[in-house]
Computed example of a mutant assay.
Amino acid sequence: MDASVFIAFYTELKMGYLLTSMQKQGYEILIPEYILRNEIKTDLDMLHKAIKKGEIRILPQIRDEDIEELRFRFPFLNRGELEVIWWGKYFKGVSKNYWCVLDDGKARKAAQKLEIEIIGTLGIIETLNELEIISKDERKEICEKLRNKGFRMPKSYQC
């Protein structure tokens, strides 16, 4: 997962428990070490508690030389986005089920070019609803709260 989804659930919504509740449905929540160390600047005590409890797992740091091919092909992406895509390529290569959670449009297009499975924060919210972790009313409330806090989403997206 890229930083935006953690910021949305842990900072904006203060509902990180929704992400970790997906674990009970067989999902594993993974965050690249680089993103945790460099891209999440706000106070995320709840996130760190979830990591300590094993509800979120930190992926190992990727060596610079291992990410250079992606950086060369997609120079407009930041390191965190490149790492999420790198891990997507890795999981795809070892035939594991995965989603790369990316919200940035350019990052999503880059992942699509590599035929990597992607989803965004809104997709996570939809999945939470489909898994009946949240109701349709809660889904709408969460969506509207994110929209009111300035979270970018398509104007056509119906909360």
Rank of each mutant, 00 (worst) to 15 (best):
Y10E: 03
Y10D: 04
M15C: 05
L18R: 05
Q23S: 07
Q23Y: 07
Q23T: 12
G26F: 13
I29R: 03
I31E: 11
Y34W: 12
N38H: 09
E39T: 08
I40Q: 06
L44F: 13
D45Q: 12
M46E: 07
H48I: 01
I51K: 05
K53I: 13
G54D: 14
E55P: 05
I56A: 12
L59S: 15
P60V: 12
E65N: 05
D66H: 12
D66E: 03
I67K: 06
E68M: 04
L70P: 04
R71V: 15
F74I: 05
P75F: 09
L77I: 15
N78P: 03
N78I: 10
E81T: 13
E83H: 13
E83I: 02
W86G: 04
G88R: 08
K89M: 09
G93L: 08
V94A: 14
K96F: 12
W99D: 07
C100Q: 01
V101P: 00
K106W: 08
R108V: 01
A110M: 13
Q112S: 07
E117K: 15
I119W: 00
G120Y: 00
G123D: 00
G123H: 00
I124A: 01
L128Y: 06
N129V: 08
N129G: 01
E132I: 15
K140A: 15
K140T: 07
I142K: 03
C143M: 08
E144V: 01
E144F: 02
R147A: 01
R147W: 07
K149F: 08
F151R: 00
F151K: 05
M153G: 01
